[in-house]
């Protein structure tokens, strides 16, 4: 089994929990693929984000997401799958109200 981080992208202003349909979708996803889900969280909208960049002397702390994009990271799941095909099948069960998801294999060291 390998781990994949599935990043959920969508409307930057979306408030997690504000839609019953999406909530139901996540619950169904949890029921359908419970044993494959190693973790996951919803994130507050990008208006709550704080970014930090080293600026030589110390750190510049600014308001806002790291990158301003039309579709922003809104949440993630950490899933376990035998290969990319299984990861794709599992990820298709995740609600995608606007935008979609990105699947990234997790690096295994050693």
């Amino acid at each position: 089994m390998s781990q994949y981080l599935v990043l959920i992208y969508g409307d930057p202003t979306y408030e997690a929990g504000s839609s019953d349909d999406v909530m139901k979708g996540h619950m169904k996803f949890g029921e359908d693929f419970g044993s494959k889900i190693a973790g996951g969280n919803a994130l507050q909208p990008t208006s709550t984000a704080t970014s930090i960049r080293p600026d030589g002397a110390g750190f510049a702390v600014t308001d806002g997401p790291f990158l301003e994009t039309k579709e922003a990271l809104g949440g993630y799941y950490l899933i376990e799958a035998a290969d990319l095909d299984e990861a794709i099948t599992i990820s298709q069960g995740i609600p995608m109200p606007a935008g979609g998801v990105e699947i990234r294999p997790v690096v295994v060291y050693g």
Partner: peptide, 14 residues
């Protein structure tokens, strides 16, 4: 290799 794209014949539904 890194994303583990499988080396197999897809399932009938795929």
């Amino acid at each position: 290799a890194q994303a583990r794209i499988p080396y197999r014949v897809p399932d009938p539904e795929e």
